[in-house]
Design a protein around this nucleic acid. Structure first.
Lengths: 220, 220
DNA sequence: CCCCGGCTGTGCACTTTGGAACACCTGGCG
DNA sequence: CGCCAGGTGTTCCAAAGTGCACAGCCGGGG
């Protein structure tokens, strides 16, 4: 193989390798639980299509969202670091299809396929950075700013023409869990943003990114 | 080499490999800044001895501690995921010696040395889990519980005889930054813990682990 | 021996947040 | 057509947390 080329991983499809080692395809309907807290942790998942939320529930019922993943991401990788049980749960947010790789297979794959391990490391590091960002966000910013940040992150660029980005329908309840606060609070802030013209619409809301980011800049 | 043996990484010294690729040794006095926010991110550090704190400062001066590292850990690895600038700072907490590896060298090393990449992945995943724990801790628990948790984590087992573990001298200010609250608050809780007999001593404080963990179990 | 800086002990006013309660809308379904 | 479920708009109060101010303690250096 031409591994002397300068950027060998410009387009690399991990699926090929995962299939080659016999990774099992599986799919879940929206809302299905892929694994839950306490389950045996002995495989890694590769998210082929759809979206997955990673959440943890506290002893007193509250739920916190620690990650929202899209296609091409890995999850359940804690087992590679010696974790025996899942410390959180993975829930399908829409129709999801994954490839399941047993722990040892994944370990072997990471050793034997450079590109695979490159990709994996880079994904993990990126997730790591993301979680750290969330941590400092939580430490530094008020719920209002965190909500603004979350909205900006959730918003997707809708074609080249429309500047107002759009947040794919999400309940205030879920927003609250992402931001780490209560629904009533989210509601109040959303209202405020609406009145200031930062967002509009009810279920799927349109976001004026440049306006909304004013909230973040604001001293307090 | 006998790589057929079942547990090849039982004792694996990464330092050998780091030296082999020309990793530069460097050392810092206590309190020195290893890198700071905004610096060019083009190398990875391997912590040979001493302790390092990873912190982020907000636009309004507050400082948050996102990690406390000990010997054998990597840091500054964000650059492997395409980060151009350091998003936080690394400070030596005592006399520290590190090995510095340029980004590309590290990437090559990770591809070519299985054990290296095994080790690295496992370290990164562990850190990841740790940060996620902190995140949910912050979301679920009150400052009091977080402080209790932090104390338990900081405490080190002092020889086989003495059940009371010991927290290596640390200022209330730093504790506050770790826990994510204010010093006055930390002070109050420490006082409370003292009165309940959970801890004793002033500068380096002795911790009664089993008693202190009562705080964590407590409903509220 | 005294002063100074750094850490600790404490009180207090002000803000933010959580949690719960209640009315309202809207779409689906019998 | 009326009911129900699930999400939304709104309000309120007590609990938790922040920021600040000020006093005390303690060790080291002039």
């Amino acid at each position: 193989m031409p591994r002397a080329s300068r950027k060998p991983r410009a387009r690399f499809n991990p699926q090929t390798y995962l299939d080659a080692v016999g990774g099992a395809a599986r799919s879940y309907p929206s809302g299905a639980t892929i694994y839950s807290q306490g389950d045996l942790a002995d495989r890694v998942f590769y998210l082929r299509s759809g979206h997955v939320k990673l959440a943890v529930v506290s002893s007193r019922g509250k739920e916190a969202i620690v990650g929202m993943l899209g296609p091409g991401e890995f999850f359940g990788e804690g087992c590679l670091a010696g974790q025996r049980q899942r410390i959180g749960m993975a829930i399908a947010r829409d129709r999801v299809s994954v490839t399941v790789i047993p722990r040892r297979t994944m370990q072997r794959l990471l050793r034997e396929q450079h590109e695979m391990s490159d990709l994996f490391i880079s994904k993990i590091l990126t997730r790591n950075i993301r979680v750290e960002e969330d941590l400092v966000d939580l430490l530094f910013n008020s719920s209002e700013k965190r909500l603004a940040r979350a909205l900006l992150r959730l918003a997707v660029y809708q074609g080249a023409d429309a500047p107002p980005m759009v947040v794919p329908a999400i309940s205030q309840e879920t927003l609250a869990e992402i931001v780490g606060t209560t629904r009533s609070r989210v509601n109040v802030f959303l209202q405020r943003f609406r009145q200031l013209g930062f967002i509009e619409g009810r279920t799927t809301l349109r976001v004026n990114a440049s306006l909304l980011s004013v909230v973040l800049a604001d001293p307090m």
